[in-house]
Amino acid sequence: MIQRIQTIWLLLATVVILGLFIFPYLNYIDLVGLGKKLFVTGEYSAVNNESVKQKSFILQTLGTIVVALVPLITIFQFKNRKLQIKLIYLSIVLVVLLGVWMYFTATSTLQLISQSFGANNIGVGFFLLPVAIILLAMALGGIRKDEKLIRSADRLR
């Protein structure tokens, strides 16, 4: 049913993944001394206290949208729990792949300015991905609990 707890977890996972559009996943200072940030939409530079887009990441933007839509679509598959479980596993794999993609984008950007990738450069966006995986795992547990309840009700009939 759509009003189960896994619906909340899946919706929260979607919101957390969409948070990548708001929070940067990399903060660094370039060779000139300008503060720069990497979002999934592109590279932004701080010029006169305003964010100016330097480079655009269209494929990463589309990939993030697809990754965010899979948990949202999973919510509406409530009549087919087996498909929901497969979609959640797919979501977890896609989130991990997005994280790897973001990591390689961040390291390649930092290599251009000969700076190492460290804890001082990590933005909030990198921490959103593990939160999304945890929320997806909690939704998976809720679906499995429902499946177990349905099987026990079928035995009683």
Rank of each mutant, 00 (worst) to 15 (best):
137 A>Y: 12
154 D>W: 08
76 F>K: 07
106 A>M: 06
54 Q>W: 11
41 T>E: 14
24 P>I: 07
135 L>W: 00
95 V>S: 08
44 Y>F: 08
3 Q>M: 04
48 N>W: 03
76 F>W: 11
26 L>W: 11
79 K>W: 13
78 F>I: 01
16 V>N: 05
115 Q>F: 07
56 S>W: 08
3 Q>V: 04
44 Y>N: 00
3 Q>S: 10
114 S>K: 15
75 I>N: 02
61 T>V: 15
101 W>T: 15
58 I>N: 12
16 V>R: 07
124 V>G: 09
21 F>E: 07
147 E>Q: 10
75 I>S: 03
77 Q>F: 12
108 S>V: 06
4 R>E: 02
147 E>I: 14
90 L>Y: 00
11 L>E: 12
93 V>H: 03
13 A>P: 01
68 A>K: 02
73 I>Y: 08
17 I>V: 09
102 M>R: 03
70 V>F: 01
114 S>E: 15
59 L>V: 11
36 K>F: 07
125 G>W: 08
112 L>S: 09
15 V>C: 13
16 V>P: 03
65 I>E: 04
74 T>I: 00
5 I>N: 03
79 K>A: 02
64 T>A: 14
129 L>H: 06
139 A>Q: 01
157 R>I: 10
36 K>S: 05
132 A>D: 03
54 Q>G: 13
28 Y>E: 05
147 E>Y: 05
53 K>S: 07
126 F>D: 09
19 G>K: 12
38 L>Q: 07
80 N>W: 04
53 K>I: 15
106 A>W: 08
31 L>I: 08
45 S>N: 07
80 N>A: 13
60 Q>E: 15
146 D>Q: 08
124 V>E: 10
120 N>P: 15
148 K>W: 09
149 L>F: 13
59 L>K: 09
50 E>I: 12
62 L>P: 11
64 T>Y: 08
103 Y>R: 13
123 G>Y: 08
55 K>F: 14
39 F>L: 14
60 Q>M: 11
73 I>S: 06
40 V>R: 13
108 S>D: 12
108 S>C: 11
96 V>T: 12
146 D>C: 07
66 V>M: 04
49 N>E: 06
124 V>R: 15
38 L>H: 06
85 I>Q: 13
50 E>K: 14
137 A>S: 14
74 T>D: 02
153 A>R: 15
88 I>A: 00
121 N>H: 11
33 G>W: 13
148 K>Y: 09
76 F>S: 03
39 F>S: 08
98 L>S: 05
78 F>L: 04
97 L>A: 05
91 S>C: 00
22 I>S: 09
62 L>M: 11
151 R>D: 15
143 I>G: 00
60 Q>F: 15
8 I>R: 02
109 T>H: 06
32 V>I: 07
39 F>K: 10
109 T>F: 04
81 R>Q: 11
47 V>L: 04
12 L>I: 05
28 Y>N: 15
9 W>T: 00
3 Q>L: 11
